[in-house]
């Protein structure tokens, strides 16, 4: 093993780097965790707004926040029951 790869190996095993990596992962998770209450409020608001345009199954509506390594997406699954021909406005 040459000097450089030896150093690389040592670097990866330093406890501060273990700490850094664990901290990075925990923060990715923390930063995308929003309270269930907030998500519930958002869902209710969504249902209210969408109901102005179409009839939806509010009981089956799901709102979730999904995160992978470097992005976060808000997804909503909203079953539509009936779409009104003319919007109320």
């Amino acid at each position: 093993m040459d000097l450089f790869s030896k150093l690389l190996k040592r670097e990866a095993s330093l406890s501060k780097n273990v700490a850094k990596e664990r901290l990075r992962l925990v923060l990715v998770h923390d930063r995308t965790t929003i309270s269930p209450q907030l998500l519930e409020n958002l869902k209710e608001d969504l249902i209210k707004v969408i109901s102005n345009y179409m009839e939806i199954d509010s009981g089956e509506t799901e709102v979730t926040l999904n995160s992978d390594d470097n992005s976060v997406a808000l997804s909503a699954s909203i079953p539509v029951i009936k779409i009104n021909r003319l919007s109320s406005r």
Partner: peptide, 16 residues
Amino acid sequence: MVKTGDMMDINDMIDI
């Protein structure tokens, strides 16, 4: 401890 790599250094924390 920072020197021996057993404590996160200043740049690590500022970055994060």
